[in-house]
Design a protein around this nucleic acid. Structure first.
Ligand SMILES: [Mn+2]
Ligand SMILES: [Mn+2]
Ligand SMILES: [Zn+2]
Ligand SMILES: [Zn+2]
Lengths: 158, 158
DNA sequence: TTGCAATTAAGAACAGTTCCTATTTACCTT
DNA sequence: AAGGTAAATAGGAACTGTTCTTAATTGCAA
């Protein structure tokens, strides 16, 4: 997927399996839940509740910010979405549930996904096993993205 | 270091290099700054501003929470400490500046340090290099720590 | 010592999130 | 299809974590 948005049929499939998960979890299929999930699923960034609320406002002018927060929390509790760990004061979310890792730009704070399957395959060092039961490991890479690097170069020349 | 607290002379050395860094950065060596740094440096957990404030309250009853926040922000800006990325609403800090990684317990939320030098040594996948200038990569491992596992076992038996 | 810019304490303000409650809605039962 | 009911929502109040404002204090250079 090189495009900035997901193809319609991939998203449609994701929506169907989302609806199935909701029914299985006894979550009512409200318009709000469907639209919030769809908006998050089609996002390639990792939006905050406020960002999602803004994006949905045009098509759902009465949607309350509280509903966005409450709904995201519900989804997270049912493992339908994930809260992304950041250093930011706002919480960021994603519907991407497959194993993946993050690139974070220290300048624009954009969070990008990436894969590193050879890392996913290795097991953790011996001495960590005694800490407890390990469930998951993920990488965060920090740096400056191309866009922000270019901007900095420009400013230097001025 | 198997002990829960650092040996006095290691901490003393860390304090000396901290004082040097402050002078180099034109930061005045106030009692508050020294004590906040010392408290963070000797901690093996990853305390929040509020936790640090509580720990310091006995010896410094007039220390304000605002000063703790302001001081931690100042230290972070001068790369004397780090803000730890978590999914938590409170910010967590550490004085440990050497490359290391984190284990986070999903139950008690405790954050533990660990080393993985063979991972530190490998370079990132080719295609990531085109994203921008990479500065650092770190791992977060999630799971349930021994203590919390034991507690859960106990509850099951009841 | 003295002078002054930097720093602090205390509380007000602010930002992000959650709670309260009256109203609405999904969906189960007829 | 219609009715009943528990769950979900909107809107505003409340709460929590963090930052700002300002007057008083302090570190440190002269
Ligand atoms: Mn992601
Ligand atoms: Mn650490
Ligand atoms: Zn950037
Ligand atoms: Zn634990």
């Amino acid at each position: 997927m090189t495009d900035a948005t997901k193809s319609t049929h991939v998203l449609q499939h994701q929506m169907e399996s989302f609806e199935e998960s909701c029914r299985a979890a006894d979550l009512k299929l409200t318009h709000q839940r469907l639209e919030i999930y769809r908006e998050l699923a089609k996002a390639t960034d990792h939006p905050s509740a406020e960002t999602l609320h803004k994006r949905l406002h045009q098509s759902m002018p009465t949607l309350s910010l509280d509903t966005v927060y409450r709904t995201l929390t519900t989804f997270e509790q049912h493992h339908l979405i994930k809260k992304v760990e950041t250093v930011d004061s706002q919480a960021h979310y994603e519907a991407q549930m497959q194993q993946h890792h993050h690139l974070i730009c220290d300048t624009c704070k954009e969070i990008m996904d990436f894969q590193w399957s050879s890392f996913d395959a290795v097991s953790v060092p011996e001495d960590i096993l005694q800490w407890g039961a390990i469930k998951n490991k993920s990488i965060t890479i920090y740096g400056t993205c191309r866009k922000c690097q270019a901007l900095k170069e420009k400013k230097k020349l001025e």
